[in-house]
Amino acid sequence: MDTFALVVTITVALGFTYTNGFHDSANAIATSVSTRALTPRAALAMAAVMNLAGAFLGQGVAHTVSKGLIETPTGDKGMGILFAALLGAIVWNLVTWYFGLPSSSSHALFGGMVGAALAGGTDVIWTGVLEKIIIPMFLSPVVGLLAGYLVMCAIMWMFRKANPHKAKRGFRIAQTVSAAGMALGHGLQDAQKTMGIVVMALVIGDVQSADAPIPVWVKIACAVMLSLGTYAGGWRIMRTLGRKIIELDPPQGFAAETTGASIMFVTAFLFKAPISTTHVITSAIMGVGATKRVNAVRWGVAKNIILGWFITMPAAALVAAASYYVVRLFFG
């Protein structure tokens, strides 16, 4: 195995983590920034630290990514497949970031893996894709929508007699905690996804066995790159989530973030399912907004976001498949 190919692939994987940071971490803090609970710089700094911490909380999601979606390819061809998968995900991330569309970096990565594997003749573990990716892709927005609605209804009932101005000030402070929970959950979910890719690259390169624990340096590298990407910011997506779906106030922001963080922790620890931060927080915002009145949510924007969800996996798969035919000229 060419060591250069291994180094290049790991470098590109860390590059994907960086784009994930400025792409998806914007989702985690958009509500706090839009309600002015946190300044943009403070929110980004807090999210960077919490993403770093979240990366060390578990490794179940990493094992799902490295072992449960495609059969580990071998040799130079296998490294080419992994490189093409990452390239497909990065290209789609950059396209959706440019247009301010909060698509899922996770599903871009999974689509890239499936597309590159099919192009390279590697078996796809379809049961794993269905159970860990497709089903959660449909269920997590539904759960986020309903849970966001119910959490907001509960808050409205509990604080129905409170002074509105005092309540908003209190929830603005509380949003510091809920935003930190979102960022921690994002680190728990998304840093592990890249850990799984790096581990797969190490296995392909015969550096370690598939059953070996994740090296500490892999955890640190993935966590640091995610944090750096987070601090670089994702202002376009932040505007879409924070203001274009619905004008959020602090209680609504707190409800959406609490809902999103709870779902991410449950799925990571109980089901080891790599769900999308984007799907969860976007649907939670919609559910929270619907408590105000159904037409308070700008469903036209929501429709475009949902369309992006369904396009992401096949689009990234096509880019990755096309990339593979170019990459194989170099990887063999």
Rank of each mutant, 00 (worst) to 15 (best):
Y324A: 09
T64P: 04
I311F: 09
K244P: 00
T9Y: 01
S25A: 15
A89F: 02
A290D: 01
A62K: 11
A116R: 08
G100W: 08
T277H: 06
L38T: 07
T258Q: 13
M313T: 09
V207N: 08
I285L: 10
F171A: 08
A53H: 04
I125F: 05
V294P: 01
R293T: 02
K168T: 01
S262L: 14
T277S: 13
L228R: 04
L248F: 02
M137Y: 00
G15K: 11
N93S: 09
G242M: 11
I245V: 11
V129D: 08
N93D: 09
Q59L: 08
W309Q: 10
S66L: 06
F22W: 10
I285V: 15
Y324L: 10
K219D: 07
I214R: 12
V297W: 01
N20C: 12
T277F: 06
A232M: 15
V95A: 15
G181Q: 05
M156G: 02
T312Q: 12
I133T: 01
V203I: 15
A116Q: 05
L202Y: 03
F159Y: 14
R169T: 10
R41C: 01
G15T: 10
S105I: 00
A174D: 05
A256I: 01
V319Y: 12
T230N: 13
F4S: 11
A26N: 11
F16I: 06
H63K: 15
G80L: 03
K168R: 15
L146F: 07
I70Q: 05
M182I: 06
V114M: 14
F22Y: 14
F330Y: 13
L6R: 07
I90N: 07
D123I: 01
K77V: 02
G120D: 04
I135T: 05
I246L: 03
V203F: 13
